[in-house]
């Protein structure tokens, strides 16, 4: 319950944070802390130094920029819930619990790339873009390139995820989730969005090592067909004592069907 000791500093700015990370590769970023601090309390993580970016104004707020909403990485889940951006508010309502949502941040969650987190499915379904800054400057990564593996995102060492750009023009969206009964993380979550061009994008989270699109489902729905079954391969899924790979694959089918029916 008592983390191992560490040095702590608050970042003055994003650039300051990036410089500090470059000076000290062992520096660990803390945002809302709702993934990092639980691990530190159990001493599963023992970073020697923390850099706190939670209060950086430049990472707060939701703005509009042309065809995009631009969401600061330090916007909390609670603020996402109350916002008018597509899909994410419904998804945020499934994250943790109210206290977690008041403190946990959208950027922290997405950069952490927990395979059972909810947002990655929403990012993939909306086609969100990720603005990432490092010593070499700023780059933008598409959702399809963001989630690389278990706890592995496109945000590299020394970089910060600063903003998430979410396209406007999504006419409808839904999220269906099957929760882990104890932790309430996603055993499977399926997100779906109908875009400005009428096309549906869909993605799942929780079931495998990383969140991913559901191409077979998109194809069927965009062809006016039902969701059907066999959307993912059981062999690609994770399995544990709460849900085998086979069950997870089945849940992807069930939740996809429900999502498609709700999407209309």
């Amino acid at each position: 319950m008592y983390p191992a000791n560490f040095d702590y500093q608050k970042a003055a700015s994003v650039d300051d944070a990036i410089k500090a990370m470059s000076d000290n590769p062992e520096l660990k970023i803390i945002a809302g802390g709702h993934s990092l601090l639980p691990a530190m309390k159990l001493r599963l993580a023992q970073p020697p130094a923390l850099l706190d970016i939670f209060n950086l104004e430049e990472l707060k707020g939701i703005k509009e920029d042309g065809d995009f909403y631009v969401v600061g990485a330090m916007v909390t889940h609670a603020d996402v819930m109350r916002s008018k951006i597509p899909l994410f508010p419904e998804v945020a309502g499934w994250v943790g619990d109210p206290m977690v949502r008041n403190r946990g941040t959208i950027g922290g969650s997405l950069a952490h790339a927990d395979p059972s987190a909810d947002y990655p499915a929403a990012a993939l379904a909306t086609g969100a873009e990720f603005v990432i800054r490092g010593m070499g400057g700023e780059r933008t990564v598409g959702a399809d390139e963001m989630f690389l593996g278990m706890f592995e995102s496109a945000v590299e060492a020394g970089e910060l995820l600063t903003h998430i750009r979410i396209p406007k023009g999504i006419s409808s969206s839904v999220y269906e989730k099957y929760r882990h009964p104890a932790s309430h993380y996603a055993i499977v979550g399926v997100a779906m969005a109908r875009h400005a061009d009428g096309q549906i994008r869909a993605a799942y989270t929780g079931a495998a090592e990383k969140a991913a699109r559901l191409p077979k489902l998109e194809e069927r729905l965009n062809a006016g067909q039902d969701a059907g079954t066999g959307l993912v391969e059981g062999a690609d899924m994770l399995g544990d004592r709460f849900a085998s790979a086979e069950f997870r694959a089945h849940l992807v089918d069930v939740l996809s069907d429900r999502a498609a029916k709700r999407l209309g």
Binding site: Y8, G33, H34, L37, K41, D52, D97, M99, V100, S183
Partner: peptide
């Protein structure tokens, strides 16, 4: 608990409910 789940430590920061076991005092 020590996994940020039970809510027994809930307090308000700036009027918002948070789990005080998952916030550093320095924060």
């Amino acid at each position: 608990c020590d996994t940020s789940q039970c809510g027994a430590c809930t307090v308000h920061i700036g009027g918002e409910a948070v789990k005080s076991c998952t916030v550093l005092a320095v924060q």
